[in-house]
Design a protein around this nucleic acid. Structure first.
Length: 420
DNA sequence: TCTGGGGTCCTAGGACCC
DNA sequence: TCTGGGGTCCTAGGACCC
């Protein structure tokens, strides 16, 4: 059996740990630029705030219900996630960290009652970290997802926060489970399946496999088998090296100046280089892209360019050089750019780089970056950077209500006022 | 006025190879 | 009239996930 543990309203809960005064109030967390809603606590869901809803549409609702809203502090979120994952690791011989707020735990051959064991996991996380989770247990990952959904949504299990989907219950549970709630069935598939008369997860499992194979793809075929209790998605204990790394941002206001856009793109390329070094990999290709406001369809411009590097690299100056070269070719005067980004791909281990006839990997460059990383680790990130990255950051993100770094900075610890 | 930022995998079609 | 049978690699677009 496999458990799926996931944090309730993750980003909201992570902030609430350090803000007990928020108890009983609707809380939401916003995306970069305070653009739209990415997390809602239960009270916020109850008053009708939707996932992904633009913030500006909510101003009235926020005033009316005194909704507390926050910008995203990824330093805090990553640290809190780490605490949860390290605690979970103590409960299982092997687990897969699926996302910042979810993990699959292998609970096969556990000598305990699984429901009690899941409760123990829940209580430990609540007590030691202050984080609430829901836990679903099933024979496969997809069934664990189904169980988790039930544990969080259905009132009779919500109190417990745990649902164990035993094999003998599978058909009766799936008969009540709407097809659109199944993990891997999105909007488009839902449309197709509904028109084929498939309303529940059980209906789906009753289709002939050949239909799924020809009408859909192997992805949905795996899903189909998983729902029937046949495991097709193995637990991926070790993170694979990523195939793409992307750094992109929307700008709070359109950027018309080429020099500012160059600074922004240089920063994105430097960030990609940093991420590559952190994973001990190099990229052989680089894509740079820009676009104007997608919601202004009358004068929309978007373009991208892919460049092949002569030798794969994770060196900031090198990636910046190619990113700017690309930007030069796609930049057009007279537009207000709303978003830009750099994506690196063809990722290979940094250890054994393939040179070409004229050029090998540069040891000099990689040593220089090692020194830069060391200095920045000690002095604070970006103390040493490439001049092209600039200083004025006219493109910087909007973040009006940033939660403190409660767990990673001495000067931002939680303060308790004893005089009250 | 205002609308995020990452990822994955699959398929189809074109260009090319022998 | 008839016109082989394999492959690979790349790209764009679509679907999905958090």
């Amino acid at each position: 059996m496999i458990a799926l543990v996931d944090i309730n309203s993750a980003y909201c809960s992570m902030i609430k740990c350090f803000r007990p005064d928020l108890e009983g109030k609707p809380v939401i967390v916003l995306s970069n630029n305070d653009g739209c809603v990415v997390a809602r606590c239960q009270l916020a869901k109850d008053i009708g705030i939707k996932m992904g809803q633009p913030f500006f549409e909510l101003k009235e609702l926020i005033r009316k219900h005194k909704v507390e809203y926050f910008s995203s502090n990824y330093t805090l979120f990553a640290d809190m996630s780490g605490r949860v994952m390290r605690t979970l690791a103590k409960f299982t011989p092997s687990m897969e960290i699926y996302s910042i707020d979810e993990a699959f735990l292998d609970l096969s051959n556990m000598p305990f009652n699984l429901s009690d064991y899941a409760q123990e996991i829940r209580h430990t996380l609540r007590k030691n970290i202050g984080i609430p989770v829901g836990i679903g247990v099933g024979q496969t990952k997809v069934l664990a997802k189904v169980a988790n959904h039930i544990a969080k949504k259905y009132p009779e299990y919500k109190e417990k926060g745990v649902f164990v989907l035993r094999p003998d219950m599978r058909e009766s549970v799936l008969a009540e489970f709407p097809i659109e709630e199944v993990w891997g069935i999105g909007r488009q598939h839902t449309k197709r399946l509904l028109s084929a008369g498939v309303k529940t997860a059980l209906d789906f499992t009753k289709l002939p496999e050949s239909w799924i194979k020809t009408e859909m793809s192997v992805v949905e075929t795996r899903l189909y088998r998983e729902l029937k209790g046949q495991s097709c998605l193995p637990l991926e204990e070790f993170a694979k090296t990523r195939k793409n790394i992307c750094t992109s941002r929307s700008f709070p206001k359109g950027v018309e100046s080429k020099s500012i856009l160059c600074e922004a793109v240089s920063n994105f390329a430097a960030k990609c280089a940093f991420k590559l070094r952190k994973e001990k990999t190099c990229a052989g290709m680089l894509t740079v892209f820009v676009e104007t406001n997608r919601f202004h369809t009358n004068s929309y411009y978007s373009n991208s360019l892919v460049l092949a590097l002569p030798v794969a690299s994770n060196d900031a100056p090198t990636l910046i050089h190619y990113a700017l070269k690309g930007l030069n070719r796609i930049f057009q005067d007279g537009y207000a750019y709303k978003k830009a980004g750099v994506l690196v791909s063809s990722i290979v281990p940094a250890g054994n780089l393939q040179g070409n006839l004229f050029e090998g990997p540069s040891e000099k460059k990689s040593k220089a970056m090692q020194v830069v990383d060391k200095l920045n680790a000690y002095m604070g990130s970006e103390k040493v950077k490439v001049a092209a990255q600039g200083f004025n950051k006219a493109w910087q993100l909007k973040a009006e209500r940033m939660p403190q770094c409660y767990t990673t900075r001495w000067d931002q610890l939680m303060a308790i006022n004893l005089n009250k």
